[in-house]
Design a protein around this nucleic acid. Structure first.
Lengths: 159, 159
DNA sequence: ACAGCTTTGTTCAAATTCGAACAACAAGGT
DNA sequence: ACCTTGTTGTTCGAATTTGAACAAAGCTGT
């Protein structure tokens, strides 16, 4: 071990903390969304991305935005369509295409869930850190996303 | 919307970046471990925690350390036991208890995987950030973990 | 018009995750 | 000893995820 250059203790600790924090936060968000609105985080993300895009996206684009695989998106959109939160429409000009269309009920569900979601993110992710700590975290994450973008698929907030 | 205090644009962007980065990084780690050593990230984590604990832990402790549910751990330890990387032993002094015991093959597998794992974490998580950026990220994550610890279950690197 | 390559979305099987329910055991008080 | 309560791990079912394989369209150059 230690052939090239081992991670320092600080680096490893940071990485573990990063994993732990994301695991725990994701779990709590999941719980909250389920309780509040009966949505999974994946489903919330789909609705949020649709709304952000003006209410309509093609499946592939949506899969990219929601950070899921194509098959995963097919599954979740099917769930959301069953619940009437999303419509599947064919795509004008491309017979292969499928548009995921945010319904009024979908918008309503998103609005209903957003409140608690924001509150949770604020309580768990934002508050509890000083301005300086959050600022450092923010810049680090920005740099991380930029770095990940370079050597891979796009990532991070579409800005 | 915006009843209490909405997340600012910066806060939301940071949160999304955090989610995106963890999703993508986890996926890449998963891939790498699978290719290198045929282990899932969950399995690697189990082996790593066992090694860190001296080679032996009770199921419940291990579940806590590896950030998984008890049933999830039962599943993964069964997989690892099938592969001969871990042994299940009964616990002296407590007939309910089960000890997960890291075998020599388990240690070897961990050693074999650790190389590539470290390299990936270094390449994707550490490098690409300046000293200052990483330091800020590190402090932010530390504070985040501390905060998450307070209002919930333990989290973060056991230090 | 056509062959060849790419893109789109779905289907499928396999793996994994979680929580709830459960049985076995431990611990404490009476 | 006994009853009550708390722990420990496992089992079970349901939900979800992913990649590979696939069919149906597009697109390109000839």
């Amino acid at each position: 071990m230690g052939n090239v250059r081992d991670l320092t203790e600080r680096e490893l600790e940071t990485w573990r903390g990063f994993l732990a924090a994301s695991t725990l936060l994701t779990r709590r968000v999941e719980q909250r969304l389920k309780d509040d609105a009966g949505l999974s985080h994946a489903q919330y993300e789909v609705l949020a991305r649709l709304a952000a895009a003006g209410g309509c996206l093609r499946m592939t684009e949506l899969a990219g935005a929601a950070l899921t695989s194509k098959s995963g998106l097919t599954y979740q959109v099917a769930r959301l369509a069953e619940a009437g939160l999303v419509d599947r429409r064919s795509c004008a000009g491309d017979d292969r295409g499928v548009l995921a269309f945010l319904t009024d009920r979908g918008r309503a569900a998103l609005r209903a869930a957003a409140e608690g979601y924001s509150a949770l993110v604020r309580a768990e992710f934002v508050d509890g850190l000083t301005e300086e700590q959050f600022s450092g975290l923010r810049k680090g994450i920005q740099a991380l996303c930029a770095h990940l973008d370079n050597a891979g698929e796009p990532v991070g907030p579409p800005a």
